[in-house]
């Protein structure tokens, strides 16, 4: 059991570290970093599902019979590039938030929002 499933559990551990950063930290850039840790761990999980013992990279050559499955590779290859594109959107939002609120901390931004609405300070 342990010998055959250890990779999955290790990727889950990495995922959970990323998820912890996303939930617990208030800094928006740190949240995005945590999100990309989570994302990379998910990529690792996908790729590990395509691995075959004794296989090689799915580039067809003479004299090789076993190949790892190419489909997870295709999905994750595109997902990495989409991931950095969405990270850029997140970072752009962070920059705009910082320009409006002068802070990157989630708590601080929320506090300024609520005080503005009550008209206590604006």
């Amino acid at each position: 059991m342990i010998g055959s499933h250890y990779v999955y559990w290790l990727t889950f551990a990495l995922m959970m570290i990323g998820l912890y950063v996303v939930i617990s930290h208030g800094n928006l850039i740190k949240k995005l970093i945590g999100l990309s840790l989570f994302q990379v761990a998910v990529f690792l999980f996908y790729i590990s599902l395509g691995k075959v013992d004794g296989g090689t990279a799915p580039i067809i050559t003479e004299g090789t019979q076993t190949y790892s499955h190419p489909l997870p590779h295709v999905l994750i290859l595109t997902a990495i590039v989409v991931g950095v594109a969405t990270l850029a959107v997140g970072l752009a939002l962070v920059v705009r938030l910082f320009e409006s609120y002068g802070s990157l901390e989630e708590d601080e931004i929320l506090r300024r929002d609520t005080t503005d609405r009550d008209g206590v300070a604006s």
Binding site: F43, A57, S68, P72, L77
Partner: peptide
Amino acid sequence: VLLDAVDV
């Protein structure tokens, strides 16, 4: 690379 995903 170890998991055979060289493109990735």
